[in-house]
């Protein structure tokens, strides 16, 4: 297709976007699960630490977080590449949100469930693993779908520090071509990716339909 410019650059950008989002989501989910568990079951000092972390993530503008990581840390001689700084930020930010999703999922399970499994003689770990967690995960599917889509869209912010993802290339191309056409191509990329994720989330939700009571 010849529309006056080279779209292969944007395809590269899209690949980078997906890599960043997938990596960020992966790390965030693992840390978020641990954090969410510690937030609901851990010792008091750890809970407060996690509450503080979540407040930091939730309370500060994303650009400020990103700039502190990329520009602010240079003051201490820490020079991160745009990609590294961007990826660390994705994980930092995503973990905060994932912790909240996991915590809400766990605390949303009716306390009677834990009582019933305890009364049957299951250990704390067995009760959590076999009774609480499966129900918590089912409740988490819709917010997690939204979370993954959010992480993917957040990669656009990284263009500001020079990570060559979709928006970075789109802006380069837009400056010497018709901008709307370029941006529409970006729209196409994002819609395809995010609607795929949305369908996937709906499918998983459907698979866990026993959760609807």
């Amino acid at each position: 297709m010849n529309i006056g410019f080279d779209t292969s650059q944007m395809l590269h950008g899209a690949v980078l976007t997906v890599e960043l989002a997938a990596g960020g989501v992966g790390v965030s989910l693992v840390l978020g699960a641990l954090g969410g568990l510690a937030r609901s079951r851990g010792p008091r000092w750890l809970r407060w630490l996690i509450v503080g972390y979540v407040e930091l993530v939730r309370g500060l503008p994303q650009i400020l977080q990103l700039f502190i990581l990329y520009f602010g840390l240079t003051q201490f001689g820490i020079n991160l590449s745009p990609f590294t700084a961007g990826f660390i930020w994705m994980c930092f930010y995503g973990t905060g949100y994932a912790i909240e999703i996991f915590r809400a999922g766990i605390s949303g399970v009716h306390p009677g469930q834990l009582e019933a499994s305890t009364a049957l003689g299951l250990s704390r770990f067995q009760s959590f693993r076999r009774v609480v967690l499966p129900q918590a995960v089912a409740r988490m599917v819709p917010p997690l779908t939204t979370f993954v889509i959010l992480e993917l869209k957040n990669t656009t912010l990284l263009y500001i520090i020079g990570v060559p993802e979709i928006m970075y290339h789109a802006n380069l191309l837009a400056s010497n071509s018709q901008p709307l056409n370029i941006y529409l191509i970006a729209v196409g990329f994002y819609l395809v990716m995010n609607m795929t994720l949305g369908r996937l989330g709906a499918y998983v939700e459907h698979k866990m339909s026993w959760a609807k009571s």
Binding site: G112, Q113, A116, L120, G121, Q126, V131, P134, Q135, A138
Partner: peptide
């Protein structure tokens, strides 16, 4: 036995009953 039943909603009836004998 509880007032609000507290069956495990993510398991079939037979698995609700068989869970604890297996695990405990």
């Amino acid at each position: 036995v509880f007032q609000s039943f507290n069956l495990f909603p993510h398991m079939s009836v037979v698995d609700n009953v068989a869970l604890a004998p297996v695990l405990v």
